[in-house]
Write a protein that binds this DNA or RNA. Structure first.
Lengths: 337, 337
DNA sequence: CTGTTAGCGCCTTCAG
DNA sequence: CTGAAGGCGCTAACAG
């Protein structure tokens, strides 16, 4: 079986099978009309030569690469290691390959964008920040885009979004019922749309109880950043009974700082909540009260939307909004007297 | 600026610039010899039309797609969310795009493999299990392969491997010095090469002290699987003062089960160690004693090796072995009397 | 340095 | 149903 595998073309197969090249091509096209006999002859020759069609060459003529670009930011992936995998699996099921782009910094996006069209990606899913201008450039190349966990206020796009409004109200009610009145906010990065939205919802929910945060601090979404922030909150000198973090990772960092460094009890002295519903938040050392994003549903929606638009480019823009769920853990409890 | 962006070819640019098509091609080729004037004319036209070369068409003729396939298993990525990103970034720096393949189950590999050559990937990095036969098929298509954290005993390959031998000895010595003599092993999946190697090293190190594990249990590398395993270890009825887990995630699960469910103290009653050096292991609730893999160095090595072989296909096979580092946390301490 | 000429491997009319 | 012919967009000799 030590045949020369590589660079076998449809011509080679055609020659061996004694048919035309186009016949070979047809045999490898799903819905083609080929006689039984022809198909057998061709397949036999193809197997013998170990032939597989060249998807690149095919893409050149069909104008479909069957590749999509998935743009993620390392920041995001840190919290959803599975997000990227779910996307990949779902695309794979639909016969679409994933070209991965990772943006660490703002500037990266531009560099990557041109690659996206140079490589003829049929579509883009962006879970990283994209400016309207950048979005428009993709559109200009007739590449459909679906934004994941982001959208523009004043510019129509396809997007998948998680609405945490109701869940946030529930969360605040839950804390209020436990007697909490003095809240601190642990904000995420200002440039994060998700952060801004979450903090807005929290403030809004507090307002309904005629409350507002007594103090706040900022982190960068990472575990480590919460320690400093918690100290800042303490140093502000206002009594606080509950800390609301913009994501689970910081909530966990806060919880550890409070318990292990400050020597206080959670939730005895302070309650802590987060957002996201990451796996680690359910570890027994944390059991975080949080708001969980339906990641699976969201990836399904994103993939379906993009594939639709790859097949039917004129499909109108759509924003699909799934709802987050309030999850009660043991990081929240009765407010101290 | 509402020009028709899409499907601008080098011919369009050539026509507008009043030059030949090949001249345009040259202007977009890095080391080409083009006169100043020509380049200016062409670039002006290209900008005006918003032209970028079609990388797919280029690949067809140069026989280089500038894409590599990165094959990961969801299992692996769960522990190293950053691995994939580091690879992507490093390839990106070298002008190489990443085509992502995710294998959830054994059978997936075969399906993905054919995609790898159909899409003309210039190389493959595999951090998932590959059989020798599968590896050979890739070779048959002249696609260089670098294996990440795996290799074959009796079949030469390019691979990057982490040798935890010395570090494991240190870890065992560390425990022995703390008075531990009664060890339990928390094994990972049997089909994981990394697991087998780690457990082998542990047994070997124990043997040097004329010891062997008093009992053992099995998990699947995931946090949740450790709880059951720890109960099994306890139910075995043998006194155990230290648990050695095949990876950090299970070590964390074990630690939580011991502390939060069984109500014992770590390391007061039992010491716990893991392998990997994942981020979460450093969280204040765990501070795991572990053996850290130099992930950054390993990804660098893998990318460098692959790119070398893409440029120089005859480069001989190489196995690069980096060493793991013993990291002392607070999950280990004096054995109880 | 520049233009001409062949393809890369495949799909897709169009006749037969 | 099958084969011939043209072309997707680009690069790589080869002359000039």
């Amino acid at each position: 079986m030590s045949r020369p595998f590589s660079r076998v073309t449809s011509y080679d197969v055609a020659r061996l099978a004694g048919v035309s090249q186009s016949a070979v091509s047809r045999c490898f096209k799903p819905g083609a009309s080929v006689s039984r006999k022809m198909r057998e002859k061709v397949m036999k020759a193809a197997n013998e030569l170990n032939y597989t069609p060249n998807a690149i060459a095919r893409g050149l003529i069909t104008r479909r690469s069957n590749m999509v670009a998935v743009v993620v930011s390392s920041r995001m992936n840190f919290y959803y290691p599975e997000l990227l995998f779910q996307l990949t699996d779902k695309f794979s099921d639909r016969g679409v390959r994933v070209l991965l782009f990772n943006v660490n910094q703002e500037e990266d996006v531009g560099r990557h964008l041109s690659q996206i069209w140079q490589y003829q990606a049929d579509g883009v899913i962006s879970a990283a920040y994209l400016s309207i201008e950048q979005h428009r450039r993709l559109r200009g190349h007739n590449i459909p885009v679906v934004m994941f966990n982001r959208y523009f206020d004043d510019y129509a796009t396809n997007s998948v979004w998680c609405d945490a409004g109701t869940a946030t109200s529930e969360m605040i009610d839950h804390l209020i019922n436990f007697g909490h009145r003095r809240f601190a906010l642990l904000n995420g990065p200002e440039d994060s749309m998700v952060n801004r939205e979450r903090m807005r919802l929290v403030r809004q929910a507090l307002k309904r109880h005629d409350l507002e945060p007594v103090t706040q601090a900022w982190g960068n979404y990472r575990y480590e950043s919460a320690a400093v922030a918690v100290q800042e909150i303490r140093n502000a000198g206002k009594k606080v009974t509950a800390i609301i973090a913009a994501n689970d990772m910081m909530a966990m960092g806060a919880l550890d700082e409070i318990r292990n460094v400050m020597g206080l009890s959670v939730p005895g002295d302070v309650s802590v909540v987060g957002f996201d519903g990451i796996n680690a938040g359910r570890f027994a050392s944390y059991e975080l009260t949080t708001i969980r994003q339906p990641i699976r549903r969201m990836t399904e929606a994103a993939v379906a939307m993009l594939v639709d638009r790859m097949e039917e480019p004129d499909t109108t823009d759509e924003k699909r909004v799934l709802t987050g769920a309030f999850v009660q853990g043991t990081s929240t409890g009765q407010a101290p007297a």
